[in-house]
Design a protein around this nucleic acid. Structure first.
Lengths: 127, 127
DNA sequence: CGGCATCCAACTCGATACTG
DNA sequence: CAGTATCGAGTTGGATGCCG
């Protein structure tokens, strides 16, 4: 499992594609960032505002991961003050489709899940 | 964020359906268990063998979560020795489709991701 | 503005041992 | 057989603060 920490030592093992991919995009932030970039290019602080409750740290780390995995591009304009724009790559855009399927499923079944949890709590039978 | 720990105090907040769902099924084990149960009912130890490298702990915990969220059913046959069977619910089965879309995407784009990582490592330009 | 480094609390996950 | 309890190492992720 690859770590998201600040360290430089990045190791790629993970024989299983699904685990590998899910390790990366399975965290909440990656999905949210990808969604935020779906309409178009955004700058760092614009992303922060768009997502709302993400810290600079996590945004920075997750963006780096997504760039590393080829989901997004990072373009630095050497101006003062610096401007950095993030955009989806073709790979990132192609991922949007299965992802949105999942999001749609989550939205339409969320109620059922919440109800299942309530039911479970109400029946502490043979547990 | 709901915890998976052993504690009894389970809190449901999570206003966002996607985060909520991903928090639960975003971990490697949930997906693997759901896949393992796709062909049909399985017992606890059969699941362990099927998945391979999961510990009893994590299997037990994750199964409980999946049951709680209504993805699977747990049927205890009061025999000696005890027999417990796990099976997908309709909800769980309905989740299989978007999930398999994602798995398919992961499989067909895994190479591209690995290549992106390699490319990234090879170009430590302005970083 | 964009983003790393540091510190730290919380949580995850596995190993092991014990139970009905 | 099918778990739960306990312990402990390792990760994650947020809060700051500094820097170009």
């Amino acid at each position: 499992m690859t770590t998201i920490s600040d360290g430089e030592e990045i190791v790629f093992e993970q024989p299983c594609p699904i685990r590998d991919v899910l390790d990366r995009i399975g965290n909440q932030w990656s999905l949210l960032i990808l969604e935020a970039l779906a309409p178009g290019t955004l700058r760092f602080n614009a992303l922060m505002r768009e997502i709302g409750d993400i810290s600079k740290q996590m945004l920075s780390r997750t963006l780096k991961q997504l760039e590393q995995d080829g989901f997004i591009t990072r373009t630095l304009y050497p101006e003062v003050p610096p401007r950095v724009e993030y955009a989806l790559t073709d790979l990132g855009r192609s991922f949007l489709e299965p992802m949105q399927q999942l999001v749609a499923w989550a939205e339409s079944h969320h109620r059922a899940i919440v109800e299942a949890r309530t039911r479970y709590q109400a029946n502490p039978e043979q547990r």
